[in-house]
Structures are given as C-alpha cells and as structure tokens.
Design a protein around this nucleic acid. Sequence first.
DNA 1: CAGTTAGATAACAATTCCTGTAAGTTAAGC
DNA 2: GCTTAACTTACAGGAATTGTTATCTAACTG
Lengths: 143, 143
Amino acid sequence: MRSPDELVALFRENGRKVTPQRECIFHLLHNNRTHPTAESIHAEVVKRMPSVSLKTVYQTLHELEDMGEISGLDLGTGSVRFDPNQSVHHHLVCTNCHTVGDIYLEIDSLQLASKVLQGFEVGNAEVTFRGLCSDCKRLGNLI
Amino acid sequence: MRSPDELVALFRENGRKVTPQRECIFHLLHNNRTHPTAESIHAEVVKRMPSVSLKTVYQTLHELEDMGEISGLDLGTGSVRFDPNQSVHHHLVCTNCHTVGDIYLEIDSLQLASKVLQGFEVGNAEVTFRGLCSDCKRLGNLI
DNA sequence: CAGTTAGATAACAATTCCTGTAAGTTAAGC
DNA sequence: GCTTAACTTACAGGAATTGTTATCTAACTG
Ligand SMILES: [Mn+2]
Ligand SMILES: [Mn+2]
Ligand SMILES: [Zn+2]
Ligand SMILES: [Zn+2]
C-alpha cells in the first residue's frame, strides 16, 4: 500500500473525496502487519474520532481493495482480514488465537502441469498454513 | 467418507441414532464431488423429505465432520463447502461461479525451513487456486 | 470566498449464514 | 411395549456485512 500522502493524492486524482475519516484509516493501515479486521480498524478509528461508523470503515477498506492498495483475505477466521502488504506472500494462521503471520515462499511446484487443471485458468495461488503460533505453542506446552 | 451402510453401522456403534433424515444425507454425500453447501444439501433433502429443517442438515454435517468423515472447507465463497473426499488434495475455486474443483499436488517445497516459520508449528497446509473454471472461461471469451 | 453539488457519512434496517432454545418425536436398548 | 437419551422441528438470536436514506461536506465554480 502507498503512503497516506500518496493515497490522498491518488484519491483526489480519481475524483474521490478525502475526508478526515479516510485519512485516519490510511494512517492506521500504513505499515500495519497485523492483518486487521474491519472491526479492529474501527476500534482504533473511534479512539481518535468517536462518531465514525463501521460502515464508513468497510466502505473505505473496500475502495482501497478495489484500487489494489490492500487485499481482503478470507482465512477462515470468521471475518475478513485486510492486508496492505502487496508483495507476493502467503499466510500462517493460528488455529487457537487467529493471529495471522506472513510467510514468503518460492513454490516452483505450483507451476502446474496444465493436465491437472482440466481447463481451469489459474489467477493466483494462496497457501494457508494452519497451526499454532509461537505464543500459543508455548502456552500449550505449559498446560 | 464411508458408504451409507457403513455410516449407519458406525453411527449405531457410537450411540448415535440413525434416522431417515440422516440416511438421506449420507446418500446425498456419497461420491459427491460437488463440494456442496449445507443449503444445497438441504435443497436436495427436501425434494425427498419436504419437512426436514436446515438445522438438521447442519447438525448431521457437523457430526460427520467431527467423526472425520467429511471436511468443512472455508474457501471464501460465502458459505462452508462440505467435502466427503478425505484424500489429501487441494482446491480450484472459480471466482465467477464459485464452482470448486479438486487438484492433487505433491508439494515438496512445503517442507519448510524452520527459520521462515518463526516458531510457528504447522499443522496443515491448504493451497487454494483462484481463477476461472473452464465453463466461465469459455463464456468470458464469447463476450 | 459564498454557493453548488457530487460524493461521503451516520444511523439504522436488512441480509446471509449459521447457531441456540425449547417443545415435541422417535430410535434403540431393555 | 416401555423408557429415555437423542433427534427433529420451528423459531428466535447472533455475527459479519451490506442496503437505504437523510444529512453533511470536500472540492469545484464563478
Ligand atoms: Mn500478509
Ligand atoms: Mn475437494
Ligand atoms: Zn496463537
Ligand atoms: Zn465458473
């Protein structure tokens, strides 16, 4: 995702309006590696601007997604995780606490023989590893 | 997933009751490669037994899942897909029509160097390919 | 720099997918 | 056949997300 300043310029170029609500969301997403949900972003926004609605947060996140600035990830944790990290990477999902981590993989074997694809045209491949994050693993060992 | 007859025996062994509703669901799942939703199973069930509730379908599917006979897959299509195919495989998801296909992969490179895992303990890896199924690709070319 | 207006916001209702509750029904064991 | 735990159904409820609409405001206009 671009910097908040670049996003402000980009929004204006696209005929979108720049509001304080949106600028706040831009800042909260910048360099954010927590894979936040719309709810968690909203919780941070209202600390600064108490009247902002969850709908506004969803709308801004979806606009950023449509612009290719962030990705919405359905990782099976119950709600969509938003990811401003646009480099090619995959995810580690803790089945206990639902923390999401990044993992950078070179997966040559995902260059698939077309015969196994039966005419399916692959756009992208997502690899999701499920297991225990280091914190949950440590706690699990203590019990 | 086992055959309907084997499931009947297994349910009785486990102290679960075998009802006509459940037997109907067993038959609908047997050799089913469509990755049905609870709703789509329910739609088939009510053709045969009109009074069966969606709750009963969900309950039976979850029991089969708990018993390891089927898997519930969250592939980002909006509702859980149930899969009686218990062999190790991955999925092709059509971003247009939400059809789900199977793909069998040998992924040696998913034997990961522990350094990239940062202490994360991997239970399993799921690979999801998103793109266009052959039908949607053909239609797309016509437009 | 006030006026105009397309677009954004906030409040609230609605939707989708799924789960909880409670009252009636039935399979399985005796 | 009787008992009873398990199952089924109808219906309400919940979580995440989206639709509606009246109000508001950023950005343009003169
Ligand atoms: Mn990520
Ligand atoms: Mn499958
Ligand atoms: Zn964890
Ligand atoms: Zn398709």
